[in-house]
Design a protein around this nucleic acid. Structure first.
Length: 480
RNA sequence: GGGGCCGUGGUCUAGCUUGGUAGGAUGCCGGCCUUGGGAGCCGGCGGCCGUGGGUUCAAAUCCCACCGGCCCCA
């Protein structure tokens, strides 16, 4: 490996994994050098981006009637164990606390791998009547999963540091169905605001979360052509309720089971932002989540240091007063060095102020999304910066969509799937029968990611296996 | 889950085959000089060579185990 400068990256196309790891470290998102496998340190800059992402999520959750709570991170085996009924082999991916101080724990305790069991244990005491329903809560906490040898920062981790898990409780199955649809809408809006293209699919019956009636997953496609699951919305019906004794008294005086759902997203949302928008120079952050939206770089030349610095300061404070997040980089480094540094960190807009600008009453604005530059007169500064940030967001969205489109394809026969799936995520018509689904998976060698239900209804499409009427559009491809 | 490769100042790395004073680049600190895409010069700082054990007069180097990382396959 040849030597790289502090801000230099392996080209993204050449080796995505390496590009991703280097970017996380050099842009100061994560420190990967923590000595526990699958766990990473979040650096201030990375934490700030993640906070802004979670702010969007919280805004959406509040708007839709979900309230934030906190439940403990430790659960006794006897409580978690009831869940194992559904989730075979789950025990093997739990972090167990077996010692308490110097002594053996009387009962093993688990670090939460997810919080259904923890919450349901308590909620059976909260929920007594139909008037206690619906109940919608969420929390943002770390969860622990001892799985996969092949850990990867932010994508396959053993400590999910930012797990937003929503849990809802309903009187009827129909309401739970409505809730799941709401959950999908929330996630759509969330990823729309992150400018990330995605696919919403229902998972196949044989790949559905254990203990669930059905679930929807959101996927995006990473630069190495693999699907990344970005979120999941699960309808448990009353299956968990029966295990955890979640009952309520209905209007008619009879006791009924509560219907439950859960839905979660994690720091994978940031992984997608970084992977999809990033380029060979580093991050390209959407303005909404960029900790610094505008960086002002003064370019002092001997003899004009004073006027350049004061023009830069003026621009910086004007923008700051107008509500933009601005950084004036008046450090001692040379301008070129600063350009590379802030580009790596993904700052959407750079304002350059040199002697020409200072004297001419304007600044030079350079966009991170496409590198284009323009002169902005001082009197139009704040208005134009606002417009530019919007243009940058839409530029990023357009580029991301173009990439996404280039990575998907549709097939109408198994043979076509086999050809296309080599470097694409492929859709195909499916009748919905399990045997036909398995047949495709066996032939193609990958599993079905999920299907868009009734997306092809009435189109006359025929199943790639049996040739029968195919109402569903299924998707198949490589997965993380 | 199966197989392979690797671990040397913050970062990247030479040295390991054939045991004998750990070398460079970058970074960091101080100073001078500079600033329109990673400047230059002078001086300085920074290493129990991943951890533990073994072989040996002597281990970064050879052997074993563990921890951590990367790659390929399922």
């Amino acid at each position: 490996m040849s030597h790289k400068k502090a801000f230099e990256l392996t080209p993204k196309e050449e080796n995505f994994s390496q590009w991703f790891d280097e970017t996380l470290f050099k842009a100061e998102i994560l420190d990967e050098r923590y000595p526990v496998k699958g766990m990473y340190v979040w650096l201030p800059y990375g934490y700030e981006v993640m906070e802004r992402i979670m702010d969007i999520m919280e805004e959406l959750m509040r708007k839709t009637g979900h309230r934030r709570v906190y439940f403990p991170g430790v659960v006794p085996e006897s409580v978690l164990g009831r869940e194992f009924r559904f989730i075979k082999g789950f025990e093997g991916s739990v972090y167990w606390i077996t010692m308490l101080g110097r002594g053996q724990a009387p009962e093993r305790l688990a670090l939460r791998p997810t919080s259904e069991a923890i919450m349901y244990e308590v909620l059976s005491r909260w929920i007594k009547s139909y008037s206690d329903l619906p109940l919608r809560i969420y929390q943002i906490v770390p969860v622990y999963r001892f799985e996969t040898k092949a850990t990867r920062p932010m994508i396959r981790v053993r400590e999910i540091a930012f797990f937003k898990e929503g849990h809802t409780f309903h009187a009827t199955y129909e309401e739970a169905v409505e809730q799941v649809n709401l959950g999908v809408r929330i996630y759509r809006e969330f990823y729309d605001r992150l400018l990330i293209p995605y696919l919403v699919v229902k998972t196949t019956s044989w790949d559905t979360f254990p203990g669930a009636r059905y679930n929807y997953d959101l996927f995006t496609i990473m630069p190495d052509g693999k699907c990344l699951e970005l979120g999941s919305v699960i309808n448990f019906g009353d299956l968990f309720a029966r295990t955890y004794n979640l009952k309520y008294m209905d209007r008619d005086g009879t006791e009924k089971n509560v219907n439950t759902t859960s839905f979660g997203v994690s720091e994978r949302s940031l992984a997608a932002v970084i992977a999809i928008h990033g380029d060979d120079r580093g991050l390209r952050l959407p303005p909404e989540i960029a900790p610094i939206q505008v960086v002002v770089v003064p370019i002092p030349i001997k003899g004009s240091v004073g006027e350049v610095m004061s023009a830069a300061e003026r621009a910086s404070s004007l923008l700051s007063e107008a509500g933009f997040r601005v950084e004036l980089d008046d450090s001692d480094d040379r301008p070129g060095y600063k350009f590379y540094k802030w580009e790596l960190k993904g700052v959407p807009l750079r304002i350059e102020v040199g002697p020409k600008e200072a004297r001419g009453g304007y600044v030079t604005a350079v966009r991170r999304d496409d590198g284009s530059r323009e002169e902005v007169p001082n009197e139009k500064l704040t208005a134009r910066v606002g417009e530019l940030l919007e243009e940058i967001a839409s530029g990023l969205r357009t580029q991301a969509l173009e990439y996404f489109e280039s990575r998907v394809a549709s097939a109408s026969s198994i043979q076509e799937i086999e050809e296309l799936v080599r470097d694409k995520i492929v859709s195909f018509p499916w009748c919905g029968r399990e045997s036909c689904g398995h047949r495709v998976e066996d032939r193609v060698g990958y599993s079905i990611i999920g299907y868009e239900e009734n997306e092809l209804a009435g189109s006359g499409a025929s199943c790639v296996v049996c040739g029968g009427d195919a109402p569903h559009r299924a998707w198949i491809g490589r997965k993380y």
